[in-house]
Design a protein around this nucleic acid. Structure first.
Ligand code: ZN
Ligand code: ZN
Ligand code: ZN
Ligand code: ZN
Lengths: 161, 161
DNA sequence: GGTGCAAATGCAATATTATAACATTTTATT
DNA sequence: AATAAAATGTTATAATATTGCATTTGCACC
């Protein structure tokens, strides 16, 4: 069964992520301010990548006053710099990183139906990229892999439909 | 020596691309109109991905009247649909496809210094992606691989600098 | 040659994503 | 308290992309 299927206790995903973030910021002596925490919570609300302006809408709901775009983008920049979120270029959207303590550029499987994105934790793809790049004398810095397709859960649902 | 190095005769890249496009459109009974041809020529002017608005500027130079954004985007949509160009999501830019007759999603090595993008023609990366995806029951549709780094030529130049 | 249709283009407005520039507030340090 | 640095607020604007509708063009049909 896929980790994103119905049974999964998402509150635990959220709690884990927020706890990891707090601890990571403490270790690194950087500030996990209220805004940064709110933005990270928005990002972790779902396993679907969320856009900056959608985050802005969420923040507007939670407090009486609506923050301006730079507020959200600055928080996102902080979270990106510290590896707490990844940016999905092909969607102009952001998603929480499941392993922020270890610096890396995530690879994502993005379901076209349910919009969930899953971060891969395999080295297979990086190896293949390095092999191909090396053949051309190219020095890899930041590989960006965003695979659109259909997740296991949605394939199952479509079979039953 | 890298194919993008100084020796390479780029006029030939352009001529080949335009000829291929004309023939492909003829075979498929689709229209290679003047605008589409101009846009494709802009895209092929360099090996660097070019943005839609930069294309628009180029078109404005060549004729007295400046086209509106939809003109360029429609031509790009046509070229994308027919595999004549690829979109580089991480740059919001477009680049000519070097093998439009064979339907595929390109993988790109993008140099951070000279901005040239090279399309890979290897299956290694696709295999790795499929392997990783299959482990999660994910059905791959369109893999997007955009690797930023430093090309062979620029590494050479930096060594000498 | 005209008629009608579909595809392509022109055009104006607007949506979406992201950043620049500068003011103000907060926090930590001396 | 004085100072400096970091973070946030605020306004405006840049950059990318799309919607909706009018007009033109190319082409099949009569
Ligand atoms: Zn979850
Ligand atoms: Zn799905
Ligand atoms: Zn060339
Ligand atoms: Zn280079």
């Amino acid at each position: 069964m896929d980790e994103l299927a119905k049974q999964h206790n998402h509150q635990r995903c959220i709690d884990d992520a927020m706890t990891q973030a707090r601890e990571l910021c403490q270790r690194r002596q950087i500030k996990f301010t209220a805004i940064r925490e709110q933005v990270l919570a928005c990002v972790w609300a779902k396993h679907q990548p969320i856009g900056a302006y959608a985050i802005l809408e969420e923040l507007a709901k939670d407090s009486t006053r609506r923050p301006a775009p730079p507020t959200v983008y600055r928080a996102l920049d902080f979270l990106l710099d510290n590896g707490l979120v990844h940016r999905i270029a092909s969607l102009n959207a952001f998603i929480g990183c499941k392993d922020p303590s270890h610096h890396h550029q995530g690879h994502f499987l993005i379901c076209r139906h349910c919009r969930n994105a899953m971060e891969l934790d395999t080295d297979i793809i990086n190896s293949a990229i390095n092999t191909a790049a090396t053949q051309h004398g190219f020095a890899v810095e930041t590989p960006c892999v965003e695979v659109v397709g259909c997740c296991a859960n949605c394939q199952e649902l479509n079979r039953n439909a």
